[in-house]
Amino acid sequence: MSAPIPRRKRRRSAPLMFLAPFGVLFAAMYAVPVGYAIVESLHKVQRSGLGLTPPKRVYAGFENYTKALHDDALWHGVGRVLLFGAVQVPVMLGLALVLALLLDAKSARLKGFFRTAYFLPYAIPGVIATILWAFLYMPRSSPVVSMLDAVGLPSDFLGEDAVLWSIANVVTWTWTGYNMLVIYSALQAIPQELYEAAELDGCGPWRTAWRIKVPLVAPAIALTTVFSVIGTLQLYTEPRVLRPLTSSLDADYTPIMSAYHKAVENNDYGQGAAVSVLLALGTCLLSFAVLKLSARLTNGRSSL
């Protein structure tokens, strides 16, 4: 007969037991792969001559990182997604905020329908969404292009200058509804008393929206901003799917495409891992900066 487990000990092990399923999955699916990527980024494969003798994997120190930092194409990709984010994120979040405010307005009708309609694009996988849009972008198949042609507005959605914004359009279309829903939920949580008080003080709907609603949902906007910034830096699906359709999208058009290109297409996993680690660090820093900045803005505004 086993001795009964002392009560205190049992109490201490219980949380661990409950954490175990998460812990195991987290370790196996997250921590281990991340660790593996970091280890891989510090190694390279050594070959010689024609490569007829078997290659050896050797420790490379920070060589992969140095190479990545000197890779012009990678920096161009980073610049491209930053430009993309600087334009697309404000446009998308502005739209999301306006839609959320409209849905939340007293005079709004058919709220359920519109909420679903705005959100629906998010339910469509990115690849499918991009393929759908691709058919509207392709010069010979697109009804939009032929209509614009007919009214004397020749357009090339997949051209060198336009393609980044064509991608931005797909991303905005997909994600606006999602962000709207986050902001809308925050709006729902605002106590009615505030509106009553505002009304008594003589606030119209515009002023209520601007002075009460927007400041109170600022934390939600900050959250969606951080998510969007992260998503921007990880831009991949849309350009990847459009790539075969146009000569404007290079193999290393965005940083993630570059990491993929290096790791899988060039079979240089060390280099690909180094780019991924750098990108993860950059994303961390940028998200942190955005959080800090928005925290400051939020505090400032709510103290008004």
Binding site: M29, P33, P125, G126, V127, Q234, L235, Y236, T237, E238, R240, V241, I256, Y260, V264
Partner: peptide, 12 residues
């Protein structure tokens, strides 16, 4: 299918 983030996830 190369789907971006998903691909990365699948790859992982």
């Amino acid at each position: 299918s190369r789907r971006g983030r998903q691909t990365a996830r699948h790859a992982a």
